[in-house]
């Protein structure tokens, strides 16, 4: 008792007047964020500046020349006919992925929200591909989608001759979308399920007393109430879809032709396979602009389509 008191008194030293409580707290704040802030400056902001700087240059790695060319790379961007195809493929891939992913996730979430015995086991199984190594998952699908692979084997047992999935333009695109959807739909499913479980039961009870049929309950109560989650996950999913690389690299290498060459894959090819670092940087700027515009547009949309926000 006495010691504790003595200690308290001893610690009652005055700090120099400059180090007020507020100043000491500010210092602590800066120290706490320093690693993150330095990291962002070094690994995001400076590279972002550099990528813009590079995009204004013609960079020949073999000749070791780095020449300022102004908007030359951007003119090339507009004139690049392959890029048009690439952007088309990117749009189809992203749109297909988001639509399929969101609807399947919602369907699965509604199913998992039913009161059924053993539902937790289904939840675990639907979620399991999320934790399977991405490249492992892609390899086994690549194996299944071979001309003489498992899927066509099964189809043949039903008397159907399947296509060479990864070697035809339409089916190749469908394949990369589907492989990616099954890999990650479990994440959105879990988010939707949590949102569904957050809808107050009383609302459904009130709707049943009002005599609303099940589908109407879903459309008029469930959907509006989970719309913030739908918006949020759709942003994450779209931005994520623009970053899909491994699946394309492993399954199709962008082919056949350019049919599955999405922007990130094209960027990788230009910069790291053909060593066009200047043009690759220009493509990076384009990717950045697309992500920024999409994110911004969706935040704007939030005001119109999201009915409810907590």
């Amino acid at each position: 008792m006495a010691v504790a008191q003595e200690n308290a008194r001893a610690e009652g030293r005055s700090f120099s007047p400059f180090w007020t409580i507020a100043r000491r707290d500010s210092l602590a704040g800066f120290l706490f964020i320093a690693p993150q802030l330095v990291g962002i400056i070094a690994f995001v902001l400076i590279p972002l500046g550099l990528v813009f700087w590079y995009s204004l240059h013609e960079w020949n790695v073999l000749a070791n020349t780095f020449t300022y060319t102004g908007g030359q790379n951007y003119r090339m961007l507009i004139e690049d006919e392959s890029l048009l195809e690439v952007l088309g493929a990117t749009a189809i891939f992203s749109a297909g992925l988001v639509i399929l992913n969101m609807s399947l996730a919602l369907l699965l979430a509604v199913l998992l929200n039913q009161k059924l015995a053993g539902i937790a086991i289904f939840r675990t199984l639907f979620f399991s591909p999320v934790v399977v190594s991405l490249v492992a998952w892609t390899i086994v699908w690549g194996f299944l989608l071979q001309k003489n692979g498992g899927i066509n084997g099964m189809l043949l047992m039903l008397g159907i001759e399947g296509p060479n999935w990864l070697r035809e333009e339409t089916t190749a695109m469908i394949s990369v979308i589907v492989v990616q959807v099954f890999k990650n739909v479990g994440l959105n499913m879990i988010l939707f399920l949590a949102a569904l479980q957050g809808v107050p039961k009383e609302l459904y009870e009130a709707a049943r007393i009002d005599g609303a049929p099940a589908f109407k309950q879903f459309r008029r109560i469930t959907l509006p109430l989970i719309s913030p989650t739908i918006l949020l996950t759709s942003i994450i999913t779209i931005v994520g879809s623009l970053q899909v690389f491994a699946q394309i690299a492993v399954l199709t290498q962008g082919g056949p032709g350019l049919s599955t060459t999405v922007l990130v894959y094209y960027l990788y090819q230009q910069a790291f396979q053909f060593h066009f670092f200047g043009y690759g940087s220009t493509l990076s700027i384009l990717l950045f602009a697309i992500v920024a515009i999409l994110t911004f547009a969706q935040w704007q949309m939030r005001k119109r389509i999201v009915f409810y926000e907590s």
Binding site: F43, L48, L50, A271, S284
Partner: peptide, 17 residues
């Protein structure tokens, strides 16, 4: 901002750095 900038965007300068 880091959320808005996929690491793919900065891969070229990061490689150079």
């Amino acid at each position: 901002l880091g959320l808005l900038i996929p690491s793919e965007v900065t891969i070229v300068p990061l490689f150079q750095m």
